[in-house]
């Protein structure tokens, strides 16, 4: 399942917009905002964002990120990529859970 197909053009424009989107950041982090960023900056082909805030006392999110950029990268490095992508947002987020898969791992997990 591919929920967010990316064209080469939109990827390039997303990269050039990076600094703008940081300044446009307005304190209220939403699931959509997180999803958009991960798709743009990590070329994610599938992103699930669950807002777990109601279970906790402050902004909390659980994300699943599927990106070909994770290939041949150890788990710690993948998580660092997500942390870097969401560095500004994480300052406002109380709790953050993440799972990082390559498209191949994602396919395998879904077929089980």
């Amino acid at each position: 399942m591919i929920s967010a197909p990316m064209t080469e053009a939109s990827r390039t424009s997303a990269q050039s917009l990076r600094s703008d989107s940081i300044t446009a950041f307005d304190m209220s982090v939403t699931a959509d905002h997180i999803r958009d960023r991960l798709i743009k900056e990590l070329a994610a082909v599938h992103v699930d964002v669950e807002d777990t805030s109601p279970n906790r006392c402050a902004a909390s999110f659980k994300v699943l990120v599927v990106s070909p950029q994770f290939e041949n990268k150890p788990l710690l490095q993948r998580h660092r990529m997500v942390n870097t992508c969401l560095a500004e947002e994480l300052k406002e987020i109380h709790a953050f859970e993440q799972k990082t898969l390559t498209p191949e791992q994602w396919k395998k997990q879904n077929s089980q």
Binding site: L75, L76, H79
Partner: peptide, 8 residues
């Protein structure tokens, strides 16, 4: 060596 957080 840093291993990671709870998810990892």
């Amino acid at each position: 060596e840093f291993v990671g957080g709870c998810d990892i």
